[in-house]
Amino acid sequence: MSNVSNTSSVLYLHGFNLSSENAFPAFLLATLSYMIILFCNLTLILTIVLNKNLHQPMHLILVNLPVSDLIGSSALFPQLINIILTKTKTIQYSTCVAQAFFIHIYAAGTVFILTAMAYDRYMAISQPLRYNSVMTNAHIMKIITAVWSTCIILIGVLFILLLRLRRCRSELTHSYCDNPSLLALVCDDTTINNIYGLFISAATQVMANGMVLYTYLHILIACFRSKHSDTKAKALQTCATHLLVFLLMECFGLFTIISYRLQNISPHLRRFLGVSTLIFPPTINPIIYGLKTKEIREKIIHFFRNKLRPL
């Protein structure tokens, strides 16, 4: 099969090999996880969108984070739940490519959005006098447009390079589709794909980590120079929250990338790391920002109090 082009539209997935006793608990866990992700992220989006006093630069950038989380989790969970429920191990090639595309959009989008949020915090804390004149609605829209346009272009080129290659295998080594798994199915030379994939991964990490490191160094300097203890504490708390989310995403992404480069790593561990990247950040992000951001927390509590109040 290694030298024969495979034109079959059906691919075979490696599931989690669940027993009949474990299938139903796994189905409930996956469904519950997806419902929690949907509820938390949609609550955060609606809270920001429906409250005009939250239409500030920080919140307008923040609202893109749950959007990205919903893209990633919705690309994974429906297919994952279907695999557990029906015990099927096949997927259409077109569906697989679409799933992989949106998963990579989620990963790139999250990193770029967190970087944009770091820039916003830098302007607010290090250059407060210029903040309102620089971070206008028009400037925010340019940042958001640049984030999503860059993601679509970078990931779009990645998959255009993939789709030009002939497939000679149809068995995926993962429980869901992504670019490395699809690239392992082709029988043509993948040098260009590997170089481009490493280039965008390295460029994204250097830019994101460089921006976050630069902005937070200046933020820390500005905080320690501040004579107002309340302002300093609030700034450090806000930045610590953002930095926690950023490091969480970076760690999961880094472990997943490394797992593909190590041949001796357990396939079960590789699948767990891959799925964790699409479960934990989308679950934790809205909870962290919803609870830690005072304005958002107050609006959410006020909304549910009004809804639960007896008539």
Rank of each mutant, 00 (worst) to 15 (best):
L114S: 06
S226M: 06
I37E: 05
H174C: 00
L11R: 03
T90M: 10
C177L: 03
V147N: 12
T95D: 13
I84K: 01
F252G: 01
L46T: 11
A202R: 05
I192D: 10
L165P: 08
V275M: 12
R225N: 13
V49R: 14
M117F: 08
T150P: 03
V49G: 04
Y289L: 10
A26T: 15
A138Y: 14
K307T: 14
L70Y: 07
V111Y: 05
L262G: 05
E21A: 12
S68T: 15
T150M: 10
V212F: 08
E295Y: 02
I140N: 05
H14A: 09
S170E: 14
L236P: 06
A107F: 10
H268P: 00
D230G: 04
F159S: 04
I81Y: 10
A30S: 14
F303Y: 08
G15W: 00
K232H: 09
S266Y: 06
T145Y: 09
L158W: 06
M211P: 00
S74R: 02
L217D: 11
V186K: 04
A75E: 07
K234C: 06
L50G: 06
T110Q: 11
F77N: 02
S133F: 07
Q56P: 00
I125K: 01
L28N: 02
I160A: 12
I36F: 14
